[in-house]
Each structure stands twice: as structure tokens, then as C-alpha cells.
Amino acid sequence: MAHVSVPMYWRTIPQRYKLIGYKCKKCGAVNFPPKGVCKQCQSSSEFEETHLSGRGKVHTFVLISAGGAPPEFAEQEKAGGQYPVAIVELEEGPKVIGQIADIDPKEVKIGMPVRTELRKIYTEEEVIRYGFKFVPA
């Protein structure tokens, strides 16, 4: 399993629990997750925090089946079967990757509206790592 230490995971809580994005003070583009230099204008490193709505549309997706899941998600795949992972274009612009939960995988469609909610992502060192997944909006 790709080891993510507890302090390293903790530092991502603003993104994983609350979708805090970073708006470039120069060009206004919203960066998520945080970047050292704005992904859009490539010239500013000054941002202000902005709370993203968590709403967006499926840009593209893939279904992960047995053998395809990273080790930390292998148990989830074994228990629940195939699961969808999508790139979602958020209302505010950024494209983010996440699982789609609460849906029959066969019903996921490009363009479908989704929103984030808190789910268990995986458990490591007996510490539950919570974070966002997308669900149908």
C-alpha cells in the first residue's frame, strides 16, 4: 500500500473534508488541490482560500474491477464489487478525481451532475481516512 502517514493525511483535511480551493489573486483561476504556482496563469503564487460547492459534472470515468484496485482499495472492491472513479469538473472550474459512490456503476454517465459528501476512503494503521467522494446530485 502507498503509505500515507497520519500527519501527511491530516494536512490534506481542508481539501478532503471541506473542499477548500485556492483562488489566484492575479488571474482568478481556482486551484484545487493547492499549487505552488497558479496552474492557469503560471505566474502567480498568491492565493485566497475559497470554499468550493462540491457540485460538478462527470467529465470522464473508469470502472475499477478485481485486480485493478490499488491495494488500499482492494478490500472495498472485494466487498462491494466494481466501483467508478471519475474526473469531475467542479462548478468553479477545477477538474478533480474521486470515486462515485451511492450508484450502480452501470448507471454512471459522462455529464451527470454530482456533488461531494464525506465517506470512508480507506483505513491505514487502524486510523479511518475520511474524505470526499462524489454521489449523484
Binding site: A79, Q99, R119, K120, I121
Partner: peptide, 16 residues
């Protein structure tokens, strides 16, 4: 509950 749900994820959803 689904595999990735528990009392806390459900509590977050209903609180919202």
C-alpha cells in the same frame, strides 16, 4: 450502509 459509510459519514450528510 455501504462499505464506505459509517455513523460519522451519515451524520455529516444529515447535518448538512
Amino acid at each position: 450502509f455501504g462499505f464506505d459509510e459509517d455513523a460519522l459519514t451519515a451524520a455529516a450528510k444529515v447535518t448538512r
